Structures are given as C-alpha cells and as structure tokens.
Computed example of a mutant assay.
Amino acid sequence: MGEPLNPLNVGIVGCGHIIGAYLETFPRLDAVRLVAVADLDRSRADAVAAEHPGVRSLSVDELMADDEVQLVLNLTIPAAHAPIALQALAAGKIVYGEKPLAANSEQAATVLAAAAEAGITVGCAPDTVLGTGTQTARRAIDDGLIGRPISATATMMTPGHERWHPNPDFYYVPGGGPLLDMGPYYVSALITLLGPVASVIGAASHTRTSRTIGSGPREGEVIPVTTDTHVTGVLVHESGALSTLVMSFDAVATQAANIEIHGETGSLIVPDPNRFDGDVKLRSLGSTDWEILPVSAGYVDASRGIGLQDLALTETDAEPRASGRLAYHALDVMESVLKSAHSGQSVTIESTCERPAAVPLTELSVRA
C-alpha cells in the first residue's frame, strides 16, 4: 500500500490508558498522521506530546478549533463519547471513537443524525473485526465453505474484572456488566460474519450483590453490584441465522470456543474477537477432524487503530467497515437483549446496517 499524498491529520481527545495501544499503531498507518492531543488533565496531554515529536498538546477546545486537525479520535470515557463526538462534528471534524459509540443508543442516534446533517463520516471501534482472524472466517463463509449459515454461538466467561482491575466499580453499575463491556467485540463480529440483527430474546441474572477488589490500593474493599452480571441472548439475524450469546462475570472458565459458526455443510471456529488474529478452524461435513484455514483476508498484523486507516482509505460516499452505523446497531442489539431480559418478551431491533464489506488480505507498510 503506497502512502497517500495527503494523510488525514488526527487529534486525540483523551490521554488515558487506552491511548498507549493507539500510539503503538500510528507509525504503521500511512493514511493518517497524529498531530495533536488533548485531555482535561493537561499534564497527561503534555506527557504524550513530549514523547512524540511533531505532536502538539492542546486543550479540548483548542483542538476542536484547530484547522490542522481533520479527524478527532475520541478516547474519552463512555459518558463523554457523545458530547465530544457532537463537538467535533460541529467543528467539521471526522469522528472515530472508542467503543461504545455513546453511553446509550439514544445518544448514539443523536451523533449519527448530526453526522448525517453535516455530511461527515463517523467511525467507531472495535476494529478487531478488520484483522485476519474474523476476516478469514468471513472469507470462508463468503466462499461457501460451510454452506448456508444456520447458527452461531458466542461465549465470554470470566469470574469478574475486580480480581485484577484496581478500580472496577463501573463494571458493576447500570451501563456496565459483561454484555456492554465485552459484547461490542462479539456482536460486531457476529454482524460482520452473518449480517444485521432483526430481533432478540434475552435473559439475565447476577449471583452476588457485592464484589471484593483483588488488587491495587483498594484491595479488599467491597463494592456493590447493581447490574446484571450474566447475560444470555438469542439474536435472530435478518438472514435467518440464529446466534446464541453468553456473556458472564459470574463463571470461572470455559473450554468453549469464543465464536462458532455452523452451516449446512461445515462449522467454523472463529478466534477471540477481542484479538485481531488467531487460527480459524473448519470442520466439513463428513470430516473427522478440524483443519486450520490459511490466512486469506484482513489486515495482517493489525492492532488497535487500524480502523482509522480503513476509514481514511474508504471512498467518500461509502461507509468505513468499522462504521458508526455498525457501532450503533451493535449497541441497539445489546440494549435490546437487556430490555428483553427484563421484560420477558422478544424485542424487535429498530436499527439496521449493511453487512460491512470484506477486507482483502492487506499488508501494512511502516512509515519511513
């Protein structure tokens, strides 16, 4: 891939922990260039700028007003995702955000409406779906290796983040929980593989009313649990395929594959959707064993931030693969699973999106 004549200039808002992963990726992205950073804690922005020549430390308002910044990478906390996105759109900036697109689907819809009115593109993580793991599985489905897709299972089991996270409170209040925390990776992958979702049925529970922090300065402190910590849902895709989703902070472990896709003539094991790579395994009808498929699609050796590159290289009138519309649909699906769990009734999904375009096998070049 040759270097574009005019890479997009990126300004980052939010210099917390996650920025490190993006900063590691930027030197490998020739379609975007980091030019500025901002944070409510100016010292954090100053520290990032000091370590990256050519990157300026600005206030949030200064970054939004800066004519050099063409795209705002929104790495703030989820509660600030929509306000920062709306401020960037009002300033005429392209927006790419960490997941979720907004704290809830109502706010996410407001962001997309503002973007549509301004004629500006919005992209959103997770971009793990653009790596060779999910994309090789997508290629196998598109090539008919499993026949017509019938069903999928997506499983994430952990005893809870309080065992390792020093400040896990937000995982256990409304807006947290295993589905809204990890679900974007799994639901985005299922939509990429099988297409948009038409309706859902959900059930949920939580086994404990408190958790004990297991590390850091607050080790031993007991925190309350006020949200569901085990969620199960059935997603009815528009194609007719059925996906069963299990997300838990209550289980100890599982041997189940992260995602399995089952078709009329074969089954696929898809690697962890929180990763960019991993082996895709196929078992064809009549076979007695699984075979590892050769890597055949996706960005090779991708890492967090590849969605920015994909957005920058997307044709003007097309949606990026890690699009705001995909992120909104995934958020709508997850909220609807929780709504169904509480009502006991199936919920029709009001939103939809196009199944994102497949990613051909693509090597990244390191910028000189």
Rank of each mutant, 00 (worst) to 15 (best):
A88S: 03
Q107S: 07
T134V: 15
L193Y: 00
A79T: 13
I191T: 12
A90S: 13
G183L: 01
I77W: 00
L75N: 00
D142C: 13
T153V: 10
P126S: 15
L193M: 08
T192Y: 14
T132R: 10
G119V: 06
G183F: 06
P149W: 05
T192S: 15
L193D: 04
E98V: 00
Q87M: 07
E117F: 00
G147I: 06
V95Q: 05
L130C: 05
L130M: 04
A154W: 08
L179V: 10
P159Q: 09
M182A: 04
T121C: 11
L190D: 11
R163K: 12
G177W: 03
A82Q: 03
P168T: 15
H161P: 03
T158N: 00
P78E: 02
G177N: 02
I77L: 01
P126M: 15
N167F: 15
Y172R: 08
E106V: 12
R138W: 02
L89F: 00
A82E: 02
I150S: 09
P126T: 15
F170V: 09
V72S: 07
Y171K: 00
F170W: 01
D142E: 15
G97V: 08
G160R: 08
A80P: 03
A154N: 13
I84Q: 10
L112A: 09
N74Q: 01
A152Y: 07
P184A: 02
P159S: 07
R148L: 14
I141Q: 02
A113I: 02
P174Y: 07
R163M: 13
P100G: 09
A90L: 11
C124S: 09
L86D: 08
L193H: 06
P83I: 12
A115R: 06
L180S: 09
L145W: 08
M156I: 02
